[in-house]
Design a protein around this nucleic acid. Structure first.
Length: 585
DNA sequence: GTTTTGCGAAACTATGTAGTCAGCTACAT
């Protein structure tokens, strides 16, 4: 079930789109978009607010507040229904076809009555678009190509897939003569969980050799656009990559522009306008004289706007501008702050590498501590027994002895934990007495995802109340693009975590990234602590931590919010939920 | 339509590139 705020945000966004498509007042469309964003990002449940409460949300006035109340009272909003009656849903969907926007979609609907992709394809084949003003043979061809792309996939890809391609392209472009600087930007630099296209920025005096090298990369399947300043290609796997070449002294302004987000850029450019300046990818200019003021570094650009440099992961127009103006921007947790990984597996259960290899790889990463947390026996397919886990513990204690005295930070302590299974009623593996023997326990839901909201909420809360459960693993159990998050009252779970001293995991696996940024922002308001873990099932997975850290940053977390940045002594005090445990290994 | 200003009316509009069709549209952040 979608969060009520998200339902309303989607409805208001649709209304804004419909206003744009029908050629309505541009200001009005913009206001609805702003209100949709504000409500989507609002911390309180808007279904429980009255008109007065709703009006306290920025960019929500009387009219929109009343529409929200109407929506929750009737299940629909008459103004939206009126526009829906004029413009079939299909017309809005037509704009999902690449190269077909609202203007052309409306013309196609009004002149030919077409509102589905199939009808449109037929009309093109029957050459019925030819007579419309603004439509030529190339447009027909592009629309057909766009329909093909839409049907073949066009989906966003997981961040690790995009990252490895981007790093490869950056390395390739950096080799080209004349390339002074090269970096990836866009949603990848902002560490969004999925990536729609890859943005590569190059600083060079002469763009042509770089543009040519770019279009000649081995995995280019199609050159979408090929200009002097910008070239776009599609890879053989269907991912679009945009290359932008700017003069070297525009680097800072160009990075600022190309990193986005779009909403963040609109805000910064608005701020420039208010100061009688103009901000573009080439620099910050005086509007009247046209004189360039700054452009070399992002810091220069932000500073001239009266802002501190804003970390890319915060640039989503979620309050970072206001916080920056107030001097209250958080210092986001960094990968180097992480002292240890608290959720990892070995080949004793479903991991691929033996304990010794995982521990050695962890030490290589410079960790001060590292926890092994294989699955308990309740996940029957893992074939765990008391004997097997106790034998592992013995070996962990030996390794702790070995590694405790060496390593990059004066020794790495090896902790013995487990990943417990939260059963349908909230129970976990093993007896309390047996669980006493672990240094820490992660507990996660692995099955029975569709119990219903109330039962699932009770289940999570019960796990939090268990004195042996320290961390809730991959809390919503989603798999990006494959399995939705469980329907649970997250605010109730967050409150339980804060009350019981249970941390929430930010699982760094690119398939999961769970919790996600928006949930982290909400959980943080409850005073919850977090653990950024890799959930590594192989040595190479330990490096996924970078994505978890990026996600934590997007949730505005600082070092202090994340328990595995803490020194071991402080971590141990946190892990001792009842305050009764004696100091362990 | 909301916010700001000062109670009805004014102000609010991001910027630039490439493509395609003959002035815009779509798209990128």
């Amino acid at each position: 079930m979608a969060r009520p705020n998200d339902e309303v945000a989607a409805l208001l966004q649709e209304y804004a789109d419909l206003i744009s498509i029908t050629g309505g007042d541009a200001f009005k469309a913009r206001v609805y978009e702003k209100a949709a964003r504000a409500i989507g990002g609002h911390h309180a449940d808007v279904s429980k607010l009255d008109v007065k409460g709703l009006k306290e949300i920025p960019n929500v006035g009387k009219s929109i507040a009343e529409k929200v109340v109407e929506y929750f009272a009737n299940g629909s909003v008459s103004a939206v229904e009126d526009l829906r009656a004029k413009i079939p849903a299909g017309v809005r969907q037509l704009t999902a076809i690449p190269t077909l926007g609202p203007k052309k979609a409306l013309v196609i609907y009004q002149e030919l009555g077409i509102s589905t992709t199939e009808e449109l394809a037929d009309a093109i084949h029957e050459e019925r678009l030819r007579d419309l003003k603004g439509f030529g043979p190339k447009t027909e061809e592009n629309i057909l190509h766009g329909i093909g792309l839409l049907q073949s996939s066009g989906d966003r890809v997981l961040i690790d897939v995009a990252m490895s391609l981007a790093e490869d392209i950056v390395a390739e472009m950096s080799q080209v003569t004349g390339c002074e600087r090269c970096a990836y930007a866009g949603s990848l630099r902002r560490v969004r969980e999925t990536i729609g296209d890859i943005d590569i920025l190059v600083a060079a005096k002469k763009p042509q050799p770089l543009m040519r090298a770019f279009t000649e990369l081995p995995y280019v399947s199609e050159v979408i656009a090929h200009g002097e300043k910008k070239t776009s290609i599609r890879t053989t796997k269907g991912l679009q990559v945009d290359l932008r070449v700017v003069p070297p002294d525009s680097w800072g302004a160009a990075m600022q522009y190309f990193t986005g987000s779009k909403a963040h850029n609109i805000r910064t450019r608005e701020m420039a306008v208010h100061k009688k300046l103009k901000l573009s990818e080439y620099g910050l200019f005086d509007t009247e004289t046209g004189e360039k003021i700054v452009s070399r570094t992002e810091e220069d650009v932000y500073a001239r706007l009266g802002l501190p440099w804003i970390p890319p992961t915060l640039r989503e127009d979620r309050g970072e501008i206001e916080a920056g103006l107030r001097g209250e921007l958080p210092e986001p947790v960094q990968e180097k702050d992480i002292r240890g990984d608290l959720h990892t597996h070995t080949d004793l259960t479903d991991g691929l590498a033996p304990l010794e290899e995982m521990v050695a790889a962890a030490a290589e990463r410079g960790y001060a501590y590292y926890a092994i947390t294989d699955h308990g026996p309740d996940m029957a397919m893992q074939r765990m027994t008391d004997e097997r886990i106790l034998a592992q513990r013995e070996r962990v204690r030996e390794l702790d002895g070995e590694y405790g005295r060496r390593g990059k930070r004066g020794g790495m302590r090896v902790l013995h934990g487990a990943e417990l299974n939260i059963g349908p009623d909230g129970d976990v593996d093993w007896t309390p007495e047996f669980l006493d023997g672990f240094d820490l326990c992660v507990a996660s839901v692995h099955s029975h995802f569709n119990q219903g909201r109330d039962a699932l909420t009770r289940r999570f809360v019960r796990a939090c109340e268990n004195p042996h459960v320290n961390i809730i693993g991959h809390p919503t159990t989603r798999l990006i693009g494959k399995r939705p998050a469980v329907d649970v009252d997250l605010d109730a779970v967050f409150a339980a975590c804060a009350r019981t001293g249970t941390a929430l995991e930010i699982n760094s696996h690119p398939d999961r990234l769970d919790l996600r940024d928006e949930d982290i922002l909400r959980a943080r308001r409850h005073g919850v602590r977090f653990a950024v873990d890799s959930d590594a099932h192989a040595v190479i997975h330990l490096a996924y931590l970078r994505y978890g850290v990026g996600t934590a940053q997007r949730g505005w977390l600082t070092k202090d919010d994340v328990i595995n940045t803490w020194p071991l002594a402080r971590l141990r005090r946190f892990l001792d939920k009842t305050g009764h445990r004696t100091e362990g290994a």
